[in-house]
Simulated scan of single mutants.
Amino acid sequence: MLQLAGHDVAHVTEVGLGNTDDAEILTAAAGQGRAIVTADTDFGALLAARGTSSPSVVMLRSSDHLTPDEQARLIVTVLERVGEELKQGAIASVTPERIRLRTLPIAPT
């Protein structure tokens, strides 16, 4: 569905990163100019620790009750609404009801 909407997407297993850790996935995504779509909150913490402005991350929150098609429609909506911000470097925390956006890099507290 994401490809049909015109997005260049790949699953980690399709690019040889299926058995790697989150830090390596972040490095690969940044190097390839990709954003990460995940339900894993560890990516936000890793980005904060790195202090970098890429890659962007779309974090699906409370999405385990959504079907894969519903998740894909939600992601398409997010990309339509905040795609430009994601190109600049951001974390989008997403539920079916709202999108919270935080610009990268995340300042240390």
Rank of each mutant, 00 (worst) to 15 (best):
M1V: 08
L2Q: 12
H7V: 02
H7T: 00
V9L: 11
V9I: 13
T13V: 12
T13W: 14
E14W: 08
G16I: 07
L17S: 04
L17H: 06
L17F: 08
G18L: 13
N19E: 15
N19W: 09
N19D: 15
N19P: 03
D22T: 02
D22W: 01
E24V: 04
E24R: 10
I25H: 08
I25V: 15
A29D: 06
A29M: 02
A30S: 09
A30E: 13
Q32R: 15
A35L: 14
A35F: 07
A35Q: 07
A35K: 03
I36D: 05
I36H: 06
T38G: 06
D40P: 02
D40N: 09
T41M: 12
D42V: 06
D42L: 09
F43T: 03
G44S: 11
G44Y: 10
A45G: 13
A45P: 06
L46S: 12
L47M: 06
A49F: 13
A49H: 12
A49G: 10
R50M: 11
T52A: 14
S54W: 03
P55A: 05
P55M: 04
S56Q: 03
V58H: 05
V58C: 07
L60V: 00
L60Y: 05
R61S: 04
S62I: 00
S62E: 15
S63V: 00
D64Y: 08
D64K: 08
D64M: 10
H65Y: 02
L66I: 00
T67D: 06
P68S: 03
D69G: 01
D69Y: 02
D69L: 01
E70K: 01
Q71C: 07
Q71G: 06
A72M: 01
L74G: 07
L74E: 08
I75E: 11
V76S: 08
T77Q: 15
V78C: 10
R81C: 08
R81P: 01
V82N: 12
V82S: 10
G83R: 04
G83T: 01
E84P: 01
E84C: 01
E85L: 05
E85C: 03
E85V: 01
L86N: 07
L86R: 07
L86K: 05
L86Y: 10
Q88T: 14
Q88Y: 05
Q88F: 08
G89E: 02
G89H: 01
G89Y: 04
A90T: 09
A90E: 13
I91R: 09
A92I: 04
S93D: 12
S93M: 11
P96Y: 00
E97N: 11
E97P: 00
E97D: 14
I99G: 08
R100T: 13
L101H: 06
R102I: 07
T103P: 07
L104M: 08
L104V: 02
L104K: 08
L104E: 10
P105M: 04
I106N: 10
A107F: 14
P108V: 11
P108E: 15
P108D: 14
P108C: 13
P108L: 14
T109M: 15
T109W: 15
